[in-house]
Amino acid sequence: MTDVLTLGEAMASIRTRAPMRLGGTAQLSVAGSESNVAIGLARLGHHVSWVGVVGDDQPGSLILRTLRAEGVDTRFVRSAPGAFTGFVAFDQPAHDITRVSYHRAGSAGSALTAQECVAAVAAAAPRLLHLTGITPALSGTARAAALAAARAAHAAGVRVTLDVNYRNRLWSRADAAAALRELATSVHTVFASEDELDLLSAAPDPVADLLARGAAEVVVTAGADGARCHTPERSLHRAAVPVPVVDSIGAGDAFVSGYLSAALDGLDPEGRLDRAVTAGAFCVGAHGDWEALPSRTGLALLARGNGTALR
């Protein structure tokens, strides 16, 4: 049985530790919010399937090879002949600033269809369907795919989770609000930062409105200030785990993977937040979107303190 099904676009990623215009050594990997979450969940021992489209090219092969190596089920991935796999570039214009540029317009990932996503929901019969607000921003077909998958999962009694993940380079706030509010009617768990909540509701208190309209929990992330989980019964806060921050890219996806893992394990909201902030701390302690994500046995390592030598 599939624990989690997720869908979206994965890209090849290129990283440099200096301004990219200067050239020099670069690191090649893969990136993508949903594939990051899939890797995080697989490392924590869950069976997770990713639905996506890659180009019939070398970057597409890299994505498939990486996901398979990390234990992610790729049976629902389609290679599109003639289409290109998108890529994202990360460089550092200053020592503590990461700049991101995307090269994905018209990519294979934007050709995801409602038919293949609904078929994957039916075939996988997952316990959870995880979506982000990035996918519906990619194209009209990708927006229809995310909505159709959410409705199909909700109708089948599958819990749907949504990480807003707003990207202003992909669409306007008005367009995002129109799509995400439609999507939110099928969502069980919402992840959003404070400045993303108005994309889901125009009410003066978006959290209360989302809970009143059927969401079971709204998780509001605040970076170094931790996160809050709101349910109809109560609200909880967890501080971020204090660790030196090397790279914040991917921290939100790490948080989500930890939270969903704990939910699948039947932990209460306190346990979910604890595992989420721990997974996020692992991610920010190293470069890369997903490379530092913990295994289940590694979750307790941060409690040993900085500088510990494991012998």
Rank of each mutant, 00 (worst) to 15 (best):
R43D: 06
P93N: 12
L112P: 02
I39E: 01
D268A: 14
D198I: 07
T98K: 15
A137T: 06
S235C: 13
A227Q: 03
P126K: 06
A281L: 10
R272G: 02
S33K: 00
G258W: 00
R78I: 08
T161S: 15
L264S: 03
A108P: 08
R228E: 09
F87P: 01
H46S: 13
R272V: 03
V158L: 12
F282Q: 06
D56K: 12
V54E: 10
A178L: 14
C117E: 00
A89Y: 04
A31L: 03
N168S: 15
Y259K: 02
P81V: 07
G157W: 10
G266R: 07
G266P: 07
A292T: 05
L62G: 12
G140N: 11
A174F: 04
T85Q: 07
V48R: 00
G288W: 02
V219D: 00
F255T: 06
L197K: 04
G23I: 06
F84T: 13
A146N: 09
D3V: 02
T6K: 00
F282P: 02
V160C: 15
L183R: 03
F84P: 00
R167E: 13
E116G: 00
A26D: 03
L147G: 14
A263E: 08
S248Q: 13
L129F: 01
S107T: 08
R272Q: 15
A89I: 15
R228D: 03
D253Q: 12
D289F: 04
T278H: 08
R151Q: 15
L260I: 04
A120C: 03
S13G: 11
P59M: 03
A42P: 09
C283L: 09
A10E: 01
V220W: 05
V37N: 00
P206M: 10
N306I: 08
A202K: 13
G288C: 07
T308Y: 14
S29M: 02
A42S: 13
G24F: 05
S172P: 06
R304F: 11
T74A: 04
L260M: 04
V284A: 11
A224Y: 04
A212E: 14
D265G: 07
A215F: 02
T231K: 02
P206K: 07
V4M: 04
L28K: 03
N306L: 12
E291P: 08
L310F: 15
D175C: 08
